[in-house]
Simulated scan of single mutants.
Amino acid sequence: MKWLYRIFSVFMAFLFAAPLVWMLVVSIKEEGMKIITVADWFKPPFSFAVYKEVLMGTKLTNWIGNSILVAVMVTVLTVIIAAMAGFALSKIPFRYRAVMFFFVLAGLLIPGEATIIPLYQVAKDMSLLNSYRGLVIPALASPVAVIVLKSFFDGIPNDLIESVQIDGGGVWKIFTRIMLPLTRPALASMAILTFIGSWNNFLWPFLSITDDNLFTLPMGIPTLMSQYSEDYVKPMVVNAIASVPIIILFVIFEKQIVKGISMSGIKG
């Protein structure tokens, strides 16, 4: 029976890897090659000249830098805010704490598309459009991260908190010395998922950014695709280059990504 599972696993791995292999092979073909059969795609000659042309002749590297900058800022600030909110909802007694938790929980029931018009109006009134601030600030509210981190904080015994309080430690010491180290796996998982979500975000940058120097990859790639509608090689080169950072991230943090998906209940 084990060999059936192995064969199935190899088949599924090949199925998921085939598009990546296809993209890489096509991206190193020479432009204008005559293609008659599928096998012609895998025959030499091969060339990296189109890579140089795309990197030097487009704003792709600038868009990659924008995506990395925005994703890192959103990830760091979101995790910090969600950790503090989750800690407050879990361990700090205050009036209407349960009401506040259900208020955060209700944020999961409202799709982002339903708030996009008022969000745009608020960003316009605050002069956030066409700026990095406009890309980062609206993405910082993450009910999923708050709820997941709160559940982890709930699992930490109150005896640890009381022992720190007896030694004279305040709320900030409890949060930084006890809570954050014990919830490091959850923090890492939420950080990775937040980074991927920000990296793939298209709708809000599409509405809030008109300056192509501030484009992120999800906005910039369709722009380049429209220029190469009759070509196969350049679109594949663009996608290959754009895929490198997120593939590296997945290879390094594969276990945390899988764990984060299982913790947050995201399926896909």
Rank of each mutant, 00 (worst) to 15 (best):
I261L: 15
Y51C: 11
F206A: 15
G134H: 03
M225H: 06
E30G: 15
G65Y: 06
M263F: 00
F11N: 07
I247D: 03
E30I: 14
G197F: 01
V148K: 04
L20A: 11
G57H: 10
P118D: 11
L203V: 11
L160D: 04
V237C: 08
I246A: 01
V144R: 05
L180Q: 02
G65W: 09
K150S: 04
V70D: 02
I248V: 15
M126F: 14
I241Y: 10
S226I: 04
W63E: 04
N239I: 12
R97Y: 04
I7K: 06
T75C: 07
S243F: 07
K59W: 03
M126Y: 13
L105S: 11
F152S: 07
E162P: 02
V76K: 05
K124C: 02
I248T: 08
M179P: 00
Q165S: 12
S9P: 00
V148F: 10
L140R: 03
P118Y: 12
N200L: 07
F42G: 07
R177V: 07
L224N: 10
F152I: 12
G32N: 10
M12Q: 05
I246R: 01
R133S: 15
S9I: 15
A13W: 01
S142F: 02
V258C: 01
W199T: 02
S189N: 09
A83R: 06
A88I: 08
W22L: 14
N213I: 00
I116D: 06
A13H: 03
F195H: 01
S9V: 14
L193A: 10
M12Y: 05
F202E: 06
L140P: 03
V244R: 04
G112Y: 09
S67M: 09
